[in-house]
Write a protein that binds this DNA or RNA. Structure first.
Lengths: 193, 193
DNA sequence: ACTGATGTTAGTACCAACTACTAAATGAGG
DNA sequence: CCTCATTTAGTAGTTGGTACTAACATCAGT
């Protein structure tokens, strides 16, 4: 076994550790067929924290993600809003949002952005989507910054009509017409949101 | 400080540890104003693993979640499929899918289930949603098992028409008519998915 | 007030997976 | 062959525990 040279080993080490943070120095020393001390020197030079810190980091990241997701309650970040009138949100297409083979955004994320924006723009305790007419006009891709605009066209009784357009660099990728049901009661059981 | 009684303390301990898994025995012993040994006895009785195991568990859970999410590529689990004809999927409404205040499912998850099912039922390398007409007929709630059925009505050239109905205990919660674009090329840039 | 059960605390030895440090062995290049 | 970089070995100390033994505290019932 012509073990790797220092530089090469360190590059591979970085990769190994980032793909599987659960590896002990001992396991790594077996993988690379060097002593534990060498692995430790490598980690020191590369500023790779020890196993426990790596695991803690992963765990922290994820509990934070969960928190921010449940806090967010919206896909995309709202950048401008006038209640019962209009709202804008930004959604950046990330790795989890696309088909792996062609990096095209899955339609339901664009729908989710639009749908969330409709819920947000209505200034009532309960707002649920009753129906929608939607169209995907062009493909958006990984890394795209999608700006979605919701405009409230009509509000009467308990129904609002909202049109949404989503664009990437001015080009329309999605448009829809949403019919929303709303009420000032905080719970209700006949429609969906 | 009239420290808690054993039973009470153990209940609070369970809660504490599950909301914040990052607490050491030492910190916990300070919180409850008992000795470290007492905390350790409590953990032993309640089968609460040690700090490191708890952290590891959180980290593992999350890396698995990420993997299964990217593997899944579908919201809901497909339970029956005949390509280019029909498909069924099951989606169980969990905590992250509902509005916190009233536990009603966010519409875009039901849309996502339907949309994913449409993508899955088409036996071509690329299938993207072109447009959809959807309706949310009743609210579904936390814990509901949503069965979605997609039926391919028509396929010609590069367009398929699929109708989807989603039910909870036979009762219709969602229906939609999806127009899908499909092709045997693996990449394409004019439509959305 | 005495006894026994239950609960709490103290203390020891040991473990994994390290850090930080010193020192020796090995290797490869000029 | 010498030298500098690299690798390995070994020791002491750390964190956050387990596992175990033993002592002490508290209260309940008789």
């Amino acid at each position: 076994m012509a073990r790797y040279k220092k530089k090469e080993r360190q590059e591979l080490l970085l990769e190994k550790v980032s793909t599987d943070p659960f590896l002990t120095d001992e396991k790594l020393s077996e993988v690379f067929e060097v002593s534990i001390q060498t692995i430790r020197l490598d980690r020191l030079e590369l500023n790779i924290p020890e196993l426990r810190e790596r695991i803690k980091h992963v765990a922290r990241e994820e509990t934070e993600k969960i928190r921010s997701l449940s806090l967010q309650e919206v896909i995309g970040e709202i950048i401008d809003i006038e209640l019962n009138d209009h709202a804008l949100s930004l959604f950046i297409v990330e790795d989890g949002h696309v088909f792996q083979k062609n990096k095209i955004t899955r339609g339901h994320y664009l729908f989710a952005q639009a749908n969330s924006l409709c819920v947000a723009v209505i200034d009532e305790p309960l707002a649920l989507t009753k129906s929608a007419d939607i169209e995907f006009t062009r493909a958006s891709k990984l890394g795209d910054k999608v700006i979605s605009k919701a405009v409230v066209e009509k509000m009467d009784g308990h129904t609002a009509i909202i049109t949404v357009t989503s664009r990437v660099e001015q080009k329309l990728v999605f448009k829809g017409r949403f019919e929303m049901y709303y009420t000032d009661e905080t719970d209700e059981g006949e429609k969906n949101g």
